[in-house]
Write a protein that binds this DNA or RNA. Structure first.
Length: 658
DNA sequence: CTAGGGTTAG
């Protein structure tokens, strides 16, 4: 009974000579892999080493070696062995020979008794990208009365994420519960992941997470990711610390990558740097994935040069990394650098993907590089082989809108080959506000109200257009319409990070203990910028109040409170960095430029349209397990005057120096 | 036989 015919490069067998299934266990030489279960089932013991051999073939995807082991198995008469069969199925699957795997499976007698082989087959089909067969096999299995176990559901859920069909997740979930597999760790982890990423349903993800009796680092990473992808950044920060304080689980590389977008969103350089340090201290590999998330974090914190240092230090650069860096330049107002890098990337033999093209078109749009934008858009198909998507069209519409070419933009929408979606109309509606085009605005809005009847932003934008031309009756009508529909817009707020704390201000916020000083500072600034030529542009007030009151309202937009606070709390010469959840209004834009001038301070305002919910801004201390780096706190959001729509006017997105 | 990763217009 030799193993001589096996491939010579295979590890030498720790060979048990007792290949007779019926031999009593005491006559069998001890095996490294022996377990109490194995002793109870003597018939499985001689095959144990074959299982190990097969496993090594599976790991190295060695088809020829695997095949010779298979023939040994046949010679030894083990072809019905319950441990070997699934491994053989797996072997042929990973080697891309799914039909052999299927054949093997079909010849299994009584396969309805063995859920293991069914799961192997299912994961084999998934491995080979044959997702269409998976559900069919699963149904066949159920019909035969085979009861799926946790492993089966793990595999099926993996297929879900590739199939991209959200209802399947809910259906499987109920079946999982019925089958009693609801407490299987990898099933729960998959459900969190799928509810978060595929179903965009953070509540369901949380429900699964909260009910778990035992969570591991994957569970925490999954829920942190779910929160980030659904823009609940404050929550993901909080979860990150809870993971360590409540359950003493150490974050790994993927956990850190998952929480970095939150640092970027809060524009919290300190946190981002702390995570960067954590990555280095723990010796996590600096690969393209970690690199791209760091590049993105530094860029969103307003530090494109640090982003470039990370980018530059990486030897391997894939399309995502290049795209992150291009976007990094773009959001920081370095449009020429973005365009340059876009070309350098291609010179390096990397072809842009559709995301890269969204990013570069957006750069052209924000940078007013209309000729470049058109050139790129017109060569999407021929030069880059990219079928234009709605996002690409939206960038062009945005580009024309920002440049004031509203009629061209409308013409473009009417002639595009894709059915325009809400964001395409929405982008142009914003531009109508900037350029005071009520007619086009109304036309676009009416189509938008049909498409997205519950999107508050659309009502707000139309209302802003009316306000800009002082049609207060219409403004009131819009507000009423929103009230009837029960819609409200997220309140605007700005925040500044100093001395390890994040201070958040709402518009006209007086909740800060030093509020009086802040408002005194604002008055002083007002006087100084008026002397420097500032004329308040009251059309951004968007409410029908007396002119004097309008000026006051403008002065206390949240970003100005944050700037005043920053001027009070930081030494002169230190740049002040503010982030805002919604866009900076045109008047504040003018004022901020002058504040920068009269105070000789560099002011860096990062605005965004991403929504930020006020309740997210309460977070406990964020500390690392060695707690050497930081103790920071996000303070709670102060009172916000909800009905003021300050800051929702669409202006050119300002990054970098205002 | 099992789970989690980076870039995305308004």
């Amino acid at each position: 009974m030799g193993m001589g015919s096996l491939h010579p490069t295979l590890p030498l067998l720790h060979h048990s000579n007792s290949s007779y299934p019926s031999l009593p266990s005491h006559s069998i030489k001890p095996l490294k892999t022996k377990t109490p279960e194995a002793l109870k089932k003597p018939s499985s013991i001689p095959s144990t080493e074959l299982v190990l051999l097969l496993q090594s073939c599976i790991e190295t995807k060695s088809y020829q070696q695997g095949k010779s082991i298979h023939s040994q198995i046949l010679k030894l008469g083990f072809e019905r062995n319950r441990d070997l069969l699934p491994k053989l199925i797996k072997l042929y699957s990973v080697c891309g020979r799914i039909s052999i795997a299927r054949n093997l499976f079909d010849r299994i007698p009584n396969r309805n008794l063995n859920v293991f082989v069914w799961t192997s087959l299912i994961s084999g089909y998934i491995e080979n990208g044959l997702l269409g067969n998976v559900i069919g096999i699963f149904l066949e299995m159920l019909e035969l009365g085979v009861k799926p176990d946790g492993f089966t559901f793990s595999s099926l859920l993996k297929a879900c994420s590739n199939l991209g069909f959200p209802p399947l997740v809910t259906q499987l979930h109920s079946m999982i519960v019925k089958c009693g597999c609801g407490s299987f760790l990898s099933v729960e982890n998959s459900l969190i992941h799928l509810y978060g990423s595929l179903c965009v349903d953070v509540e369901s993800a949380h429900r699964v997470f909260d009910r778990m009796s035992c969570r591991d680092v994957v569970s925490w990473t999954s829920i942190i990711r779910a929160c980030c992808s659904l823009e609940k950044y404050g929550e993901s920060m909080e979860l990150f610390s809870r993971m360590q304080f409540d359950e003493d689980i150490k974050p790994n590389e993927l956990t850190v990558v998952s929480v970095l977008p939150a640092c970027g969103f809060f524009s919290s350089l300190r946190r981002g740097q702390a995570f960067h340090a954590y990555i280095i201290r723990n010796g996590f590999s600096m690969n393209v994935i970690v690199g791209a998330s760091l590049v993105s974090m530094y860029s969103h914190c307003g530090h494109p040069d640090d982003a470039f240092l990370v980018f530059d230090s990486l030897k391997e650069r894939n399309i995502v990394l290049w795209t992150s860096m291009i976007e990094g330049y773009s959001v920081n107002g370095r449009f020429d650098s973005a365009l340059e890098l876009f070309h350098v990337m291609q010179d390096n033999g990397i072809e842009p993907n559709y995301v890269t093209l969204i990013v570069i078109l957006s750069a052209c749009s924000h940078g007013g590089l209309i000729d470049d934008g058109w050139e790129i858009f017109n060569s999407l198909r021929d030069k880059f082989g990219i079928e234009p998507r709605a996002e690409h069209y939206a960038c062009v519409v945005d580009m024309l809108g920002r440049a004031g070419q509203l009629d061209e933009a409308e013409k473009f929408i009417n002639t595009m080959s894709l059915k325009p979606n809400g964001s395409i109309f929405g982008s142009l509606l914003g531009a109508c506000g900037v350029y005071g085009n009520v007619d086009l605005g109304e036309r676009l809005a009416s189509r938008l109200f049909e498409l997205e009847p519950n999107n508050a932003a659309n009502y707000v934008m139309l209302s802003n257009i009316y306000a800009a031309v002082e049609r207060w009756d219409d403004v009131g009508r819009m507000r009423q319409l929103m009230a009837v529909k029960g819609l409200s817009k997220d309140p605007g707020c700005s925040w500044i990070e100093t001395k390890n704390k994040v201070y958040v201000f709402g518009a006209h916020d007086r909740s800060h203990p030093e509020s009086d000083n802040i408002y005194r500072m604002l008055e002083d600034l007002s006087d100084r910028i008026i002397k420097a030529g500032y004329v308040p542009s009251t059309k951004f007030v968007l409410r029908d109040v007396e002119d004097d009151d309008k000026k006051k309202l403008l002065c206390s937009h949240s970003e100005r409170l944050a700037i005043a606070f920053g001027l009070m709390k930081t030494p002169s010469g230190v740049p002040i960095r503010i982030a805002k959840n919604i866009r900076v209004c045109g008047d504040c834009h003018d004022a901020i430029k002058l504040i920068s001038k009269v105070t000789s301070r560099e002011l860096i305002i990062r605005d965004t349209i991403r929504p930020l919910l006020s309740k997210e801004l309460s977070s406990r201390d964020l500390m690392f397990e060695d707690s050497s780096i930081m103790k920071s706190r996000i303070s709670t959001l102060g009172n916000i005057v909800q009905h003021l729509m300050g800051g929702y006017i669409s202006i050119r997105k300002q990054h970098g120096h205002p």
